[in-house]
Simulated scan of single mutants.
Amino acid sequence: MNEEIFEKDEWTQEEYLNYKDELEKQGINVLLVDTVLKPIDTDNCIKYNPYEMALLPKDKTVFVFYCDTGKSTKDRLEFYRNKLPGYRCISLHGGRGYWRPNFRLLKKP
């Protein structure tokens, strides 16, 4: 696994999409975690539920937490990491407010 990906505590939407593609090629599932009960329209969004999240394999799962602005999840990141020891936990920069539903990465030929 590329450790440089996890040097930052928060990812922009572009970083999230890039890293998600890269990690999924390695068999690692990257999930958006909804902490405000306002799901982002994507196939890999789950509600924050530490009990169910802890059932997922630690070495094959990355959680990307989001709220409305990204501030609360960044402030609470250590709380989430303590609740889910051994998991990779990241905050989504800007939260739902900065999420662009039509944003796509251009694939390089």
Rank of each mutant, 00 (worst) to 15 (best):
W11I: 06
W11E: 01
S72I: 06
P101V: 03
A54S: 15
L55G: 02
D59A: 03
A54D: 12
F6K: 01
Q13R: 04
K38Q: 15
Y48W: 14
I28T: 09
K38I: 12
F63V: 00
L23S: 05
E14H: 11
D21R: 13
D41T: 11
V30S: 01
D9I: 01
R76D: 14
Q13K: 00
E10R: 14
T69C: 11
Y66E: 07
D59S: 10
K47G: 05
Y87P: 01
N49Q: 13
V64F: 05
Y80P: 01
V36H: 07
E24S: 07
E7P: 00
D75N: 12
D59W: 01
N44K: 11
E14C: 09
L31D: 00
E7A: 05
T12G: 05
P50D: 13
D9C: 05
N29M: 06
L56W: 02
D43I: 10
F65D: 02
E24A: 01
T42K: 03
I28K: 11
F6W: 02
L77W: 03
T42S: 07
T35K: 08
E52L: 10
E24Y: 09
L32Y: 03
G70D: 08
V64S: 04
T61H: 06
E52W: 10
V62R: 00
R88S: 08
Q13G: 03
I46Y: 07
R81K: 14
T69I: 07
P57K: 08
